[in-house]
């Protein structure tokens, strides 16, 4: 019913690496749930649960990404916890613990960014004192703090989590569990709405409607819709280029290649 010591260490380390990757080094998997579900699945020896949890949370997290330093829920941590707990007690139980901890990720993120302010101030002091080695070295505290902000919650969830989840599951009303499942189905709407806020929806609502109709009525898979979207985008690009060449016709054509 519980994890081996090695598994706890590896999963905690995975969360640490995940967050350092997320903030830049080397920013490959940017906290994308499908990847972290897969990696956690490999560690706990249940790849399938990792894939299912990763896929589920990925859909919840679509479009939720922290631009310009805003703090967003840590769905990567949600995935790691939900996968690990999910292999022991079922995916629903895993999500029941993983989602709240992921939401706390917003607060952890803010705390680290405040602490980083002190580290950076120290670094600049070293620069002014001409201690250039220390100036660079001290900055490494920042990624470590980010790493810990994911590793510590994961460690606590794994060690106390199973007992806590057991207790909760035995005492939790059914509407709470089915409510969380329903929330999981509804939350993608938040990400999609955020995407729509970010994109020029009012200007190009026609393309949005095309995508909606071919999916809702014709049931075309997303990959097919993406190809249609690409065709439409290509057309617009060509049109814009053509318009521009008409407008400046005569001068300033750049004919490289």
């Amino acid at each position: 019913m519980s994890f081996t010591v090695l598994q706890v260490i590896l999963i905690t380390l995975l969360a640490f690496i995940k967050h350092i990757d997320y903030y830049g080094i080397p920013m490959l998997f940017v906290n994308y749930p499908v990847f972290w579900g897969l990696f956690t699945g490999i560690i706990v020896g249940d790849v399938n649960t990792g894939l299912v949890v990763g896929g589920t949370v990925q859909l919840m997290a679509l479009g939720v990404s922290g631009f310009g330093g805003s703090s967003v829920p840590d769905y990567g941590t949600t995935t790691i916890i939900a996968t690990a707990i999910g292999t022991k007690m079922g995916i629903e139980a895993g999500l029941a613990l993983g989602i709240p901890v992921g939401m706390l990720g917003v607060q952890f993120d803010v705390i680290v960014k405040i602490l980083n302010g002190f580290v950076v101030k120290k670094s600049q002091e070293y620069a002014n004192k001409k201690e250039f080695k220390k100036m660079n070295l001290v900055l490494w505290i920042c990624p470590i703090l980010f790493g810990l902000s994911a590793a510590i919650p994961v460690f606590i969830s794994l060690t106390l989590g199973t007992t806590a989840v057991n207790f909760l599951l035995n005492n939790m009303p059914t509407w709470f569990i089915s409510g969380l499942t329903l929330a999981g189905n509804m939350l993608p709407a938040v990400g999609i709405a955020m995407l729509l806020r970010f994109m020029p929806l009012k200007q190009y609502i026609n393309y949005f409607l095309i995508g909606f109709v071919i999916s809702a009525f014709l049931k075309m898979p997303v990959i097919g819709v993406a190809i249609v979207g690409f065709a439409l985008a290509f057309d617009l690009y060509k049109r814009r280029e053509h318009e521009a060449s008409l407008n400046i016709s005569g001068g300033g054509d750049n004919e490289d290649e």
Partner: peptide, 13 residues
């Protein structure tokens, strides 16, 4: 943006 909005339209259903 056009590509993005087409795909997002399909994501809702």
């Amino acid at each position: 943006s056009v590509l993005g909005l087409t795909v997002i339209g399909a994501l809702i259903p």
